[in-house]
Simulated assay, not measured.
Amino acid sequence: MKTNPWTKRLLVLLLIPLALWMARSEKYTFTPNTALTTITGERITLKALQGKPVLVTFWATSCPSCIKEIPHLVALYKQFHPKGLEIIAIAMVYDPPNRVVAMAHEQNLPYPIVLDITSEHAKAFGRVWATPTTLLISPDGSVAKRDIGAFDPNDMQARIEQLLKG
């Protein structure tokens, strides 16, 4: 049985908003004890970061939007890290570790980079499936903002400033 091409397009148009809605309404399972190990071997727990805003970004070296966001992330880090902001970049499971490490060095990334070898972190932070996905976690540990796709740098800057004041 042949399917009308318009039927396929309509189905895709209906499924994309549903997937985005499901991802935004997803309950997050990360806890203050969620532990992350960086490419340099440093162990970070969210519990140790409580009281600070934390920006967690899921990315991949093969993702053009992720690469485009790097200068914005570096600028946010340089501007707000001295005031308490932490940024953690988590590379997706399908990203080869050697490429992640090489890009981190090439781009001279100042914030910690984590490899998600088993998809454990993508699951813990709300079943992250698209890159980039960015979560801004408030000092009390709640998710203040979740962006699927590239974030708006001006909006993110304003939100971070508000969390640092609060």
Rank of each mutant, 00 (worst) to 15 (best):
V101S: 07
V101D: 07
A102V: 05
A102Q: 14
A102P: 03
M103I: 02
M103Q: 05
A104G: 03
A104Q: 03
A104S: 05
H105T: 14
H105K: 15
H105I: 11
H105L: 14
E106C: 03
E106V: 00
Q107W: 13
N108E: 14
N108H: 15
L109A: 03
L109K: 04
L109E: 02
L109I: 09
L109C: 00
L109S: 04
P110I: 06
P110T: 05
P110V: 06
P110L: 11
Y111G: 00
Y111Q: 03
P112H: 09
P112G: 04
P112I: 02
P112V: 04
P112D: 13
P112T: 08
P112L: 06
I113E: 04
I113R: 06
I113K: 03
I113S: 01
V114C: 03
V114N: 01
V114W: 02
V114Y: 07
V114T: 03
L115H: 07
D116K: 01
I117Y: 12
I117V: 13
T118L: 11
T118K: 10
T118R: 11
T118N: 11
T118E: 09
T118I: 06
S119F: 11
S119P: 06
S119Q: 13
S119Y: 06
E120K: 15
E120M: 13
E120G: 10
A122G: 06
A122E: 08
K123S: 11
K123A: 11
K123R: 14
K123V: 13
A124K: 12
A124C: 05
A124P: 04
A124D: 08
F125G: 12
F125R: 13
F125I: 13
F125S: 14
G126C: 12
R127M: 12
V128N: 08
V128A: 08
V128E: 10
V128K: 09
W129S: 15
W129V: 14
W129I: 14
W129P: 04
W129R: 15
A130W: 10
A130Q: 12
A130D: 11
T131P: 08
T131D: 10
T131H: 07
P132I: 03
P132V: 05
T133S: 05
T133W: 00
T133P: 01
T133M: 01
T133N: 01
T133V: 02
T134V: 03
L135F: 07
L136W: 06
L136V: 07
L136C: 06
I137Q: 06
I137H: 05
I137T: 09
S138L: 09
P139K: 05
P139F: 09
P139R: 08
P139T: 09
P139H: 04
P139G: 08
D140F: 10
D140V: 11
D140E: 14
D140P: 12
G141W: 00
G141E: 02
G141K: 04
G141D: 03
S142K: 15
V143F: 07
V143E: 05
V143M: 00
V143P: 05
A144E: 15
K145V: 09
K145I: 11
K145Y: 10
R146E: 00
R146A: 01
R146V: 01
R146L: 01
